[in-house]
Design a protein around this nucleic acid. Structure first.
Lengths: 206, 206
DNA sequence: TTCCCTGTTGAACGATCATGCAACAAGGAA
DNA sequence: TTCCTTGTTGCATGATCGTTCAACAGGGAA
């Protein structure tokens, strides 16, 4: 009893996907708080409570983990917008989801922002972004087309989807950079103020 | 003549602001091509053709140079939108400027994107951003208010300015991330398609 | 020409980075 | 109980980072 050896196991063995999920979550937290400059193996493992070798062991490299974090950030958005096996939501519900507290979080937005720059400079994330973004845009375009047809308007649904996504992303961005005088509610209201003159009324009155 | 000494001076002495401008330009180029991860003293000095000590000497630190790069990126935008001593442009002209080749460049946009993440995570750039962005928003809000008054519409000019800026930034962002099927012209057209139903016709027919 | 201010250099430094890897041990299987 | 699979550890390594600083030299002033 005089030595410093602690009783019990020194660490816990976890299943492959459990540990991977822990690292992804830690990576997301680090990315949200400190941006891409804080996304280091040391920080991630300290937050996750794991040792430094695990990142390479589970994801091959740090960039592999970053790709997993990106996919994990996209997943809830896509599932909220296009639930599997269910029929696609109306445009009004879709916009509601985009500005819901689940997606419109300061933490989440910082993750997006940090990763966007990596994509723009041609990292390995570029291809994965193209795939996920194409799915995202297709869902939005479908909702836009349905909304337009329901109200007898003729619009270019693809172009309008790009524009709507740009508007949402831009509002996200402004909330990240300077939340002064901005709330999720005002952002959503601003979004609807531009959409409804073109696509007809959204929301419960549909 | 047998030694390797080259004739002529080994370097050129430049004025304080000349050298500083060279470093800022190099920093912008590096930032545009590789994002914040490529924004290193080594890269910057290699591109600029200067030695490593100059960054600290002229800007105090690397972050000081980053702040200067940010201000230098904002300046042409503000000057195009709110030329000093001249009366503010109409909203149509303002939008033209925002999507003009001078501002809507892939290089410029990558610089913005790289710096945005730094601002969002609370770096030293935050205060400078607040100042410059407030000026930017005020100019846009003024143009929006004038446009609305000219066409007898009543809008919340401040909120509409935030929304317009968000839309422009979002379109910039999408062009950075995935230029597929996007051009400055289509982006501008998408922007006008949302604005004109609310604010009346923009452009030459004003 | 000589002098001196100051812009410039580049090596040195310690901190921090991502990754490799051999040893270790947890915990189920037998 | 013993054995073996495999998740885990953490040190070693070499690269790269930002910053410091003493020496250097360009080029105008006198």
């Amino acid at each position: 009893m005089s030595d410093g050896a602690l009783p019990g196991p020194r660490f816990r063995r976890l299943g492959r996907e459990v540990r991977a999920a822990m690292l992804v979550e830690a990576g997301m937290k680090v990315l949200a708080e400190g941006g891409i400059r804080a996304f280091t193996v040391d920080n991630i493992c300290k937050v996750s409570g794991a040792s430094r070798g695990l990142v390479t062991h589970h994801f091959g490299s740090k960039d592999g983990l970053l790709a997993a974090v990106y996919a994990a950030a996209y997943r809830p958005l896509l599932e909220a917008i296009a639930p599997e096996g269910a029929e696609p939501p109306e445009l009004g519900e879709l916009v509601d989801h985009l500005f819901s507290p689940a997606n419109y979080t300061h933490e989440t937005l910082n993750v997006w922002l940090a990763i966007w720059s990596e994509i723009a400079t041609g990292g390995a994330l570029r291809d994965e972004h193209r795939t996920l973004y194409a799915r995202y845009r297709a869902v939005v375009a479908g909702a836009v087309a349905a909304q337009a047809a329901r109200h007898g308007r003729t619009v270019n649904a693809e172009a309008m989807a790009i524009t709507l996504i740009a508007l949402v992303d831009g509002l996200w961005l402004e909330l990240c950079l300077d939340p002064t005088g901005m709330t999720p509610e005002s952002a959503k209201a601003a979004c609807l103020a531009l959409l409804e003159p073109v696509l007809g009324p959204l929301g419960e009155a549909a």
